[in-house]
Simulated assay, not measured.
Amino acid sequence: MRLRDELPVDHHLATVYRYGAAFCGLVLIVFGCLGFADALSPFSTSGDTIAGMTTNVALSVLSTVVGLVLIAGGVIGGNAASTLNMTVGALFVLSGFAHLAVLDRPANVLDFGMTNVIFSFVMGLVILTFGMYGRVSSKLGHDNPYWRRRHPEQAAREAAARAAAEARGTLPASGPRPAVAPSAHDPNT
């Protein structure tokens, strides 16, 4: 299965992935720039706070780089943005757990405090949500390309029924097409 083949480039979900990545990237860049503006030392663990979170230059650089990567994913859009959002979101959640384990220890080189850990969890879940939107659900619509990919037999039956209805003239040949209700005997729905 190729990720680039799962979702058409012009599908409406691509907009959610694109704007979600760009928004989260912008938030991270603003945080990183605020850290640079405060002229912090590179690996200080003295507790300088920016926007309610402790930071140092290393964390500002990391935030800016990840923000730029997310914005690049937003520019690319489509499945690349979705996959990038899911990957970065998962890394944020893992980072939250890792930094929770090193709070108040010398290994805390990014000067994480509890607010940073909470921000990491929340931002990770927000980025994950933008990446998984329309991809992961038990109630995806039948017009969703991910649903069609997971249920190829039923999607083929629905496409054949739609083509037959168009041939009879009961469905318009263009424009939005109504989803065909799932059959009662299909265990995949």
Rank of each mutant, 00 (worst) to 15 (best):
A160T: 09
L59T: 09
S138T: 15
R157T: 08
T83Q: 09
H151C: 01
T64Q: 04
G134Y: 00
A72S: 08
T87I: 14
G73M: 10
A80N: 07
D143W: 01
A173P: 03
V126N: 07
A159G: 02
A80M: 05
T129I: 01
S137T: 13
L110C: 03
M86F: 06
A37Y: 13
G78E: 02
L110S: 02
P178C: 00
A155C: 08
I118M: 07
A164Q: 13
M114T: 11
Y146A: 09
I76K: 15
A98P: 12
A80D: 06
S60Q: 06
G134M: 12
A80F: 14
A159W: 00
A165C: 04
A98I: 14
F92T: 12
T54S: 13
G134F: 04
F130V: 01
L68E: 03
P106Q: 08
H151M: 01
S60F: 09
M53N: 05
L40P: 02
A101I: 03
L128N: 13
S82L: 01
G131N: 07
P176N: 15
V109H: 04
T45N: 04
S41D: 12
P145I: 06
V180Q: 11
T115F: 06
A98H: 10
F130P: 02
S120A: 12
F36A: 03
T87G: 14
V180K: 12
V102N: 10
H142W: 04
G89M: 04
G67P: 08
A161D: 14
A90G: 10
G124P: 12
A51F: 06
T55D: 08
S63K: 06
G175R: 13
G52K: 03
V61W: 02
A167H: 08
R157W: 03
F97L: 13
G77L: 04
K139Y: 05
V109I: 14
V109E: 00
T83M: 09
R149Q: 05
M86P: 00
L94Q: 14
F43T: 09
G141Y: 07
D38M: 14
A159R: 01
A163Y: 02
L91C: 15
G175H: 11
V65K: 00
V88E: 07
R157C: 04
V102F: 00
R148I: 03
N85Y: 06
D48W: 07
P178N: 07
G74R: 11
A107C: 03
A80I: 12
M123I: 09
A37N: 12
A90C: 11
V61D: 04
S60A: 15
A159F: 03
I76Y: 11
V93M: 14
G78C: 00
M53E: 01
E153W: 04
L40C: 07
G169N: 13
D143P: 11
L100Y: 08
L125Q: 13
G35R: 09
L128T: 09
Y146I: 15
V57E: 12
V66Y: 07
A51S: 13
S46H: 15
P152G: 03
P176E: 15
L128S: 11
S95A: 13
